[in-house]
Design a protein around this nucleic acid. Structure first.
Lengths: 359, 359
DNA sequence: CTGTTAGCGCCTTCAG
DNA sequence: CTGAAGGCGCTAACAG
């Protein structure tokens, strides 16, 4: 294969051990415990490395050091704006710390998720960041129990006490709903949400609290649970509009559901004539998640913007910390630690992160 | 660490070599050359593996076999619908073949791209799939020359003769423009496009050919090159609208630019009153790329839909083929092979892939 | 059919 | 400050 440390040693007229030491000086992680090397030999070795174009073999190093400087990241799906913003945040953070991200998708299946985390463990990743596919986390906890550093993002799970970074979901829908109330709406529905997912539950709860605070007792039919995808939003919206006295406003559990709802509205007012106003009273939507597309969603009035990239870098920093702690032998802090990042409510009539103003 | 092959060997009362052979039977890649093992011992070993919860260590195996069963994927950015659809396609294909995807972002920088491909090489990935960040590919070719299997996606580059899978870009804008012509538009602009990127060049070319066919000589100011991002579309559109006699229709080089253009239109007609028609003659847009958001873009009339997931799985299959060929010693076919997938023109007035009809 | 024996490329005591 | 030697976990001849 490529040139090895032996080639370099030969070229520089030293032993492989010396080359290894020279290398150690250049790694942030090992620089402190690096043994001294005479400046003269160091230079000689460096020159040889240059000349031969030597590059370390991480596989070999990993086998020896039991550390691959890679962290596994498992997300429910890739084609999702929110997840990918999180991924960007993670990758940048990891990269700046000398770690590599290995990204895998669990295809929204808890079974696949299990396979993926084990597969990553087989590849000896030093740690793992996961957005759980479901609500149960025994398999995650199980792997963590073997000593694998792990941090969750976005969703919390039952059956596991793991570190996590997520948003203040409850507060998000609380403020979203309150904004709608302030605008004079009274008949406000909540659409979408897999009630097994913690984030969805929290969002429903915030909605409920805002209504309670306003002394409004929501009609049970206003709460249209089920699903986190585009089709789910579409279906729920359709059902809502068929009602005799439909809600005037609604809170969407996430961007996908929100999209489906808007799609439904579009179809309702006769396809093709998108510019033309219909006779129907147009409901107003306040949705979780903000993206560059929200300014184009006609019914959208408010969005709760999560700092996805920020969540990612937070998670990245956290996992690297845990890995370092583990390496340095400290058995680390006690129990789980959950970081909740605040969300920003955006009046998207004026744009949003991509052009609007915050409240 | 975890249990090793030695533990299993001891537990089953056999040698490590035998365990290794039993393992080989279960890998698709090695099953054929796997040496026979007596059914009785095989069962005994399997039982031991179960009992101990043994899992192979890919790092160790990789060091020995010079193959990690991982392929590196380098994309210009992660938070991009088109790229992520491609990634999904790649991952599924790789996974079904027993390979793991390692995804990295080049942050739209050719320098970063270079770092990333070498870093992946250091990790001994068996092959690489990249969407180039720029127009030059010496560094890619350089790595390929060392024997690293490589396939490009979406964009071709100068300075390299590599396999690639891309779309029929020229045909896409050709048909897009022709559809606009058929609708009676004559003053048609082309917006966006980093002329250094092959895909952008090809798209411009298709536009030109359609106009030529119709005997139209485009005003030079209709061709607004520069940039592939949202802001670029915004700026170009603004400039266009300021002209005395602006075009009635435009072709957008990609979804990002398209978005920026729509954004600009939105801002033009006085913010806040999105439902209300303006006095201004509304231009019509035909854009490359289709997504679940295009139905919401008011000016969008046609889109050229690329089969992003399909491109991904094609690329995945291709890279696995190349890897296998390399492993089996065959020095492979001659020169570069470029696969061009057809695009579908969608009348997005009626929805698109996410609800519309193809032409 | 199975065991023994060498390493893959690197790091790391332990001597010098 | 540097070299020699052993081994991380696994596979692949080569014997038996």
């Amino acid at each position: 294969m490529g040139t090895t440390i032996r080639d370099v040693a030969f070229e520089a007229g030293v032993s492989t051990a010396t080359v290894s030491r020279v290398l150690a000086v250049y790694e942030r992680e090992t620089a402190e415990r690096a043994r001294p090397v005479a400046e003269k030999t160091r230079l000689r070795v460096m020159a040889a490395i240059q000349r031969l174009g030597y590059r370390v073999n991480y596989t070999a190093r990993g086998l020896k050091t039991q550390s691959t400087m890679a962290v596994g990241v498992v997300f429910p799906e890739l084609a999702n704006d929110f997840f990918m913003d999180v991924a960007e945040g993670i990758e940048r953070e990891l990269d700046s710390q000398g770690y590599t991200m290995i990204l895998a998708s669990s295809l929204n299946s808890i079974e696949e998720e299990k396979k993926r985390i084990y597969m990553l463990a087989d590849r000896m990743v030093d740690g793992m960041v996961v957005i759980p596919a479901g609500s149960r986390g025994e398999h995650l906890q199980g792997l963590a129990d073997t000593g694998m550093p792990m941090v969750l993002v976005d969703r919390l799970v039952e059956g596991a006490a793991l570190d996590a970074v997520t948003s203040d979901n409850e507060d998000g829908t609380f403020r979203l709903t309150r904004a709608l109330l302030a605008d004079g709406f009274r008949r406000i529905a909540f659409v979408g949400g897999e009630i097994t997912l913690s984030a969805a539950r929290e969002r429903l709860s915030g909605y409920g609290r805002a209504l309670a605070e306003a002394g409004i007792n929501p009609d049970p039919s206003w709460i249209c649970l089920g699903g986190m995808e585009v089709e789910d939003g579409y279906k729920r919206m359709k059902t809502l509009l068929k009602k005799g006295n439909p809600p005037e406003a609604m809170v969407a559990v996430n961007l996908m559901v929100h999209l489906g709802m808007e799609r439904c509205l579009l179809d309702m007012k006769g396809n093709g004539s998108r510019g033309q106003e219909s006779r129907l009273t147009e409901p107003v939507i306040a949705g979780f998640d903000e993206s560059r597309y929200t300014p184009f969603l006609p019914a959208c009035r408010y969005t709760a913007s999560q700092d996805a990239v920020g969540m990612g870098s937070r998670a990245g920093r956290r996992i690297v910390d845990k890995i370092r702690q583990k390496k340095s032998g400290k058995e680390e802090t006690t129990g789980e630690r959950i970081i909740r990042l605040p969300v920003t409510i955006v009046n998207s009539t004026n744009g949003g992160k991509h052009g609007g103003k915050s409240l």
